[in-house]
């Protein structure tokens, strides 16, 4: 008798093929659509041919700009990644500080926790104008938007993780003579760090969203800025490679964080398997 669907597993090589399949289908659909539209109208800009895309990539990623002598894609990437990195770093540090304090110190929790919850309900894009007014149109306001957008959720997540820790561990640490500070440093913090990386991975998506939004609205350089700039000329040949590049960067960030987590916290895997 045939086994149930939930018990049927693809082979190792099958997994690779099945994983690639949607990408191949998408590319094939694009190629077909592009060919049909170009046959109809050779000047169509909506779905440029692969050769056009390659030429655009060559122009923005390989050739120095005639005016500035810089390669456009790298300049944009450097600007965007600097903003993103700063935003993520500040948000992570804040989340660690506030999340642990909220999770373990009853007095801080009573004072700060409702505020963090309320704060996390503010739609970040709604305060973007305020950020522009207060922090100006340059780098700071973009970094602040990213922090504003992801830090409150991360704080709440970490607080929940701290509260989830078995009480027994905290009691045990006290019977072994540890002070509050030592408990935070040696019991809570190390166990929360893997969760922090998880929270950071989940925040990567929103962080990119806020970055691109801020760049689209007011900027002079950056990946988001470029996309929205060339949109005026319907330059799909530039937009599509940029989107692919951003996706690649985001995926790379995610994979890197996962590998860092596995490397640094070897005890986590066993724990997860057990519960």
């Amino acid at each position: 008798m045939a086994r149930r669907l939930i018990n049927r597993h693809p082979t190792r090589i099958g997994i690779v093929y099945l994983g690639l399949l949607p990408f191949v289908v998408l590319i094939a659909l694009y190629a077909t659509g592009s060919a049909i539209r170009l046959a109809d109208n050779p000047t169509d800009k909506l779905l440029p041919a692969f050769s056009t895309l390659a030429a655009a990539v060559d122009r923005v990623a390989m050739t120095p700009d005639r005016r500035t002598g810089e390669i456009l894609l790298w300049v944009d990437t450097a600007a965007s990644l600097t903003r993103l990195g700063l935003g993520l770093a500040v948000a992570t540090a804040l989340a660690l500080l506030v999340g642990i304090a909220n999770g373990i110190l009853p007095y801080v929790r009573a004072g700060l926790s409702p505020f963090v919850v309320a704060f996390s309900m503010i739609p970040p894009m709604a305060v973007l104008p305020i950020l522009f007014i207060v922090f100006g149109l340059d780098e700071l306001s973009k970094v602040v938007l990213i922090v504003f957008g992801i830090a409150p959720t991360m704080m709440r997540d970490l607080k929940a993780r701290v509260e989830e820790m078995p009480r027994e561990q905290l009691i045990k640490a006290q019977t072994l003579g540890a002070s509050s500070w030592q408990i935070v440093l040696r019991v809570v913090l190390p166990q929360v760090l893997p969760r922090l990386i998880d929270a950071l991975r989940l925040s990567l998506g929103p962080a990119w969203l806020f970055l691109i939004s801020a760049e689209a609205i007011a900027s002079e350089v950056g990946l988001g800025y470029r996309i929205f700039l060339v949109r005026r000329y319907l330059a799909m040949d530039v937009i599509l490679p940029y989107v692919a590049w951003i996706t690649l960067l985001a995926a790379f960030g995610d994979v890197t964080l996962r590998m860092v987590s596995r490397k640094l916290f070897p005890w986590v895997e066993g724990e997860r398997g057990r519960s």
């Binding site: 045990k172 640490a173 019977t175 166990q191 724990e271």
Partner: peptide
């Protein structure tokens, strides 16, 4: 008023630190 080194404890579960 709080746990101290004077009294040690072993619980049924979660008595040891998983990250050490």
């Amino acid at each position: 008023a709080e746990p101290t080194e004077q009294r040690g404890v072993v619980f049924q579960r979660y008595s040891v630190f998983p990250h050490l």
